[in-house]
């Protein structure tokens, strides 16, 4: 089985595949990672959000410490400030949500441009690129390889070839190559299957056998009827 190890197409495809799998495995951490990315719009909004929240907590504590009846004016002023701050906080929160959504969209586009589209382009443009050729004779029986490459005529001509004293192997059999598209598909299937097996065998908790239900049997043992 010949493998063209100097083929850059295969290496690039493998890298894309590995990155995709990595992103798939780490999907639960993406939100956390994204929050740590230094987007200026999110950073500013988050800073303001934290400051406002701190201010609100400070005021709430202050208001809890003073007597509303003895310091009514102060208490009310604090309440007014609190209402104002809470409104501001909710608008910052909205701003933050919008900024995060915008950044998510940006990252999505980035992923599309850097990963998905090039990978798709690679598959489309280089999909028929032969990764390796299947060996001519030793993968399948001679007869089968002959039918595969020459068609059913090979089978029909086989007795004639034998009568003419020619060996069956003398017939030239065309080389069968495995294209990048097929190879990637097969590779992904293998990885997915291994992934599934590992998950089922080691990571998923065992399902307990359900207890068989004991049905109550109502039998009529007596034909007496009680009267009121």
């Amino acid at each position: 089985m010949a493998f063209y190890s100097d083929n850059w197409v295969v290496y690039v495809a493998l890298i894309y595949l590995a990155i995709n799998k990595l992103l798939q495995y780490t999907i639960s951490h993406h939100k956390q990672w994204k929050s740590k990315l230094p987007f200026p719009n999110v950073r500013v909004s988050r800073q303001r959000f934290l400051e406002k929240r701190h201010e609100i907590r400070k005021l709430q504590i202050e208001n809890r410490l003073i007597s509303a009846q003895d310091n009514y004016a102060q208490w009310t002023k604090n309440n007014r400030k609190l209402t104002k701050l809470e409104k501001e906080l909710s608008s910052i929160k909205e701003e933050l949500t919008k900024a995060v959504a915008k950044n998510d969209k940006l990252l999505g586009t980035l992923k599309l441009v850097v990963l998905t589209l090039p990978f798709l382009a690679l598959k489309l443009l280089k999909g028929k690129h032969i990764v390796y050729h299947l060996p001519k004779s030793d993968v399948f029986p001679q007869l089968m390889s002959g039918v595969w490459t020459k068609g059913w005529l090979y089978l029909g001509l086989a007795p004639l070839q034998m009568l003419r004293g020619r060996s069956m192997s003398a017939v030239s059999i065309t080389e069968v190559g495995v294209s990048l598209g097929i190879w990637l598909w097969a590779l992904q299937r293998v990885v997915d299957t291994i992934e599934f097996l590992i998950k089922q065998l080691f990571l998923e908790s065992a399902v307990t056998r359900p207890e068989p239900k004991v049905q109550e049997v109502h039998e009529i043992n007596s034909d007496k009827i009680e009267l009121d």
Binding site: A68, Q69, Y72, T76, N79, R80, T83
Partner: peptide
């Protein structure tokens, strides 16, 4: 009185 003022403040707001 306290409660009346409190309610008035709420009404004004």
């Amino acid at each position: 009185e306290f409660l009346s003022l409190y309610e008035t403040e709420r009404l004004i707001q």
